[in-house]
Design a protein around this nucleic acid. Sequence first.
DNA 1: ATAATATTCAAACATGCGTTTAAATCGAAC
DNA 2: GTTCGATTTAAACGCATGTTTGAATATTAT
Lengths: 219, 219
Amino acid sequence: MSEPSTCDRILDAAETLFAEQGFHLASLRQITQAAGVNLAAVHYHFGSKQALLLAVFRRRLDALNQARLKRLEEALGKADGPQLEDVLDAFVYPALAFSRGSDADGHRFMQLLMRAFADRDEDLHAAISSEYAFVMRRFADAIAQTLPGREPDLLRRQLDFIVGALTYTMAESSLADTRSIASDLVRFAAAGLRGSGLSAELYDSTARTGARGTLETSS
Amino acid sequence: MSEPSTCDRILDAAETLFAEQGFHLASLRQITQAAGVNLAAVHYHFGSKQALLLAVFRRRLDALNQARLKRLEEALGKADGPQLEDVLDAFVYPALAFSRGSDADGHRFMQLLMRAFADRDEDLHAAISSEYAFVMRRFADAIAQTLPGREPDLLRRQLDFIVGALTYTMAESSLADTRSIASDLVRFAAAGLRGSGLSAELYDSTARTGARGTLETSS
DNA sequence: ATAATATTCAAACATGCGTTTAAATCGAAC
DNA sequence: GTTCGATTTAAACGCATGTTTGAATATTAT
């Protein structure tokens, strides 16, 4: 009885095969065969293929969110108030460590996560968003606290830049050192945030000669 | 004969449906019905569903690469040498304009492109890379020219950050103004690049004293 | 007009899919 | 030891898919 349960074996196999081949290409026959369980076990324990995918996501996102929030709490509890780099690191590092840890499936899950963002599956998107919205707002608030006066719309847009950079980086198959990648990304994001406090829209209102017109103010 | 040819009608419908639903979910019956052509026309003109996908990519990537390189040439031809913002804009703006232009299919194609990066389809990945490698190197060289002394490995990594931010932003369905998004992203990327070029030891300011401990201490 | 070629068409083929079913097997509780 | 619910199993169902086929039609050149 040291064997993992049927549910866990299905979840593990599904996570691997969904990430490797995509949701629609990975078949339940493949998954159940890799898990060493019967085909019908999926519908017995989860109800449908789609519900299985959601279960795979939930299991990992819970752990990731917890790790991120724990680090965020540490950053917020500092004596002098939160430092921007600490907040960014609390967001970036757990995800990268998760995607490159000793568990090879972590990396595959992160590829699956990026796939989910690329997909237009609305049910899946909604499920992930609801699982993430709370965490994202905590981080947005913390970052705003370190950048007083920043317009909320611009900050949201810049957070998307960081999420994109992080997601894309995680999906890359390069096996470079996690900590150094996290360091580089935090530094890059912090510099990007600090160095572009004013929205381009404020400049665009007067310069109508195209994007380059607004960009040549590279003082 | 004022109607578009069968090939073009298939390509248009395929681009839309691949982007909306993904490669494996969009069926040839859907595509040929939307195009108003017979089911077998796909195999007659393209050979297979996969070959149709590659044809869809090639048609758009040619145009995007051309637009990017044209703007890059303009940036490189400036009297005082290329400005970092101009080079970044040459990379960012055509993609964003393409994804949000008057042609609604442009946006869908960019979603399809992000999907391709998330997919592990090696044939597709190789085809896209070969179509992109030349352009990417041109831009990497141009950026390196504006940031003398930057370590090539770090620059490559930072370029991936920018590609990720751009790709993720393009896949978002928000309909905000293209030029303002491009400007914000260029400004963010330029600040990120300029502000994080120094090694960790030299990058030392009061704002960062807490980050190093967090980043380089494993939990 | 005729022949040759290129293209379109409706129909079928083989396959794999997610799902369902109903019987078989297991594990405790009484 | 029997009973009863939980779990596993093998088999089948219905359906959609990519692909192929061969005849019908349009296009072009002679």
